[in-house]
Design a protein around this nucleic acid. Structure first.
Length: 204
DNA sequence: AGCACGATTAACT
DNA sequence: GTTAATCGTGCTC
C-alpha cells in the first residue's frame, strides 16, 4: 500500500502566478505526480516550453478567448490539456495572473515511480522512451481531456506537481520551441524551450 | 458546411 | 531523411 508519509505538499499557487518563462525553467527538476488506479505514478520534469499571451503567435491564445483556450485565461496552477493530430493529448500548466493567457507545455519526464504501470501503458517502448515527448508522457500517465482545468496544487485532482531537486543553470539548455515551424519570427526562434543537458552530468 | 492544419509519434526508405 | 495516422479547432464561404 502506498505510504502517505512520502507525499510532499504540491507546489503552491504562487509558484505558477509569475512570468511563464521563469516557471518553465523552474519546473525542471520538479516532480509530476499522477494518482491512477490506487498507484502513484511520477516523473522528474526534464523538458518544458513557455507559451505566453495573445501576442505570442505560437500560443493557442493567439486566437483569443475560445472554448479551447478558456482554461489559459483562468487561474494559474491548473492543467490545460488539449487534443491534437487526431490522437494525442498534451499537458500544460497554466501560469501568470488570472486573465492573462499563458501556460507551460510539459514535454518530457524521467519516470521514477509506477514503472510497472507505465511499462504496460507504454507497451513495446523501452524505459528511456516512456515519457520523452509531450504525447508519450500523457499516454504513460493516463492524462487526457478529463483532466483539463484540474487543480495541480492539490492531490485531490489526481494530478499535481511536488517540489523536487532544482537543476543548476550549468545543467540546463535553452533554445527555440519545437514543432512551430510555420510561426513567424520572433516567436519561432525565441528561446523558450528548456531541457536538462544529458551531457553535463545531470543524472537523467 | 467545408477546409487546412496542428505545441506528435511510430514506422518506414 | 519521409510519411501516414486521425479529428478538433478556427477560419472562410
Amino acid at each position: 500500500m502506498y505510504n502517505i508519509r512520502r507525499m510532499l505538499s504540491p507546489l503552491p499557487f504562487s509558484f505558477y502566478e509569475r512570468n511563464t518563462v521563469d516557471v518553465a525553467r523552474a519546473l525542471l527538476g520538479m516532480r509530476l505526480v499522477r494518482w491512477y488506479q490506487q498507484t502513484r505514478l511520477s516523473g522528474i520534469i526534464i523538458e518544458a516550453e513557455a507559451y505566453r499571451g495573445e501576442e505570442d503567435l505560437a500560443c493557442h491564445a493567439r486566437s483569443g478567448y475560445t472554448r479551447r483556450t478558456r482554461v489559459m485565461y483562468g487561474p494559474p496552477g491548473r492543467a490545460y490539456v488539449y487534443f491534437t493530430y487526431g490522437m494525442h493529448w498534451m499537458l500544460n500548466v497554466v501560469t501568470e495572473r488570472e486573465g492573462f493567457p499563458a501556460a507551460v507545455l510539459i514535454r518530457a519526464v524521467q519516470v521514477v515511480e509506477g514503472q510497472s504501470v507505465v511499462a504496460e501503458r507504454r507497451a513495446g517502448a523501452p524505459p528511456h522512451h516512456w515519457a520523452d515527448g509531450p504525447a508519450k508522457l500523457c499516454q504513460a500517465f493516463a492524462i487526457d481531456g478529463s483532466l483539463n482545468s484540474a487543480d495541480l496544487t492539490t492531490p485531490e485532482s489526481g494530478l499535481w506537481i511536488e517540489p523536487g531537486t532544482p537543476f543548476a543553470d550549468s545543467e540546463i539548455l535553452s533554445g527555440p520551441r519545437v514543432g512551430i515551424n510555420r510561426v513567424p519570427e520572433p516567436w519561432r526562434s525565441i528561446p523558450w524551450r528548456f531541457r536538462v543537458d544529458a551531457h553535463r552530468g545531470a543524472s537523467i
